[in-house]
Amino acid sequence: MLDFTMLIEPDNLKLYADGLLTTLKLLLVSLACGLAVSVPLAVLRVARSPLLYGPVWLYTYVIRGTPMLLQLYLIYYGLSQFAVVRDSLAWPLLSEASFCATLALAINTCAYTTEMLAGAIRATSHGEVEAAKSVGMSRATLYRRILLPSALRRSLPAYSNEVVMMLHATSLASTVTLLDITGAADRLYSTYYMPFEPFLAAALIYLLLTWGLVRVFRKLEGRYLAYLAPRSH
């Protein structure tokens, strides 16, 4: 019934290998950009002034409240509809499917990570904040030395979830002509008229990647959250 022989043909193996590279590139670049931007946004998000937290709240609310596939379509197909966009300086970038996909992924992970970090900052124990103030730390120093390092560490378990979700979200890139892992499987599906084998192979690759990511985060948690673990002796 099942026939996996097509999967071991050199051309098709290469298709999956290239797909794996594309997936990893999408994931790593968007995660790096998203995380870098989310740290300052999280600080703004917990600010007292509505002028500061308002825009960030709106951003995370809209992005988290709409499907990513839709956002990707808006960026890739929607923007290209307007001549203004096509004549703009941004067009060389926006005309690239890989840029559009990375942008959509980064905007997404940034929104979720911002809320996650903001939550962790809010949950910092008052004792730590008061102690910092009592030794005369300025607001900036307080964030740099106490709030952010602690919040980033405590966000690790939630962030590992986010990374795994993002890995799976990269599969949406196949809807805008990119040949990621899902795109490679899709290609084989339409070439051989067989859905099961290529998609099963793709699922297996995602599963292995997820397993690897979870292991990496285990290690990181063991190192950076050791201070929160119960005393063993």
Binding site: Y77, S80, Q81, R86, A97, T177, S190
Partner: peptide
């Protein structure tokens, strides 16, 4: 490769 011809024509028109 595209999923349908409409997407092809959109991207032709967009210059992609």
């Amino acid at each position: 490769p595209y999923d349908n011809t409409q997407q092809v024509y959109l991207d032709l028109n967009a210059g992609r």
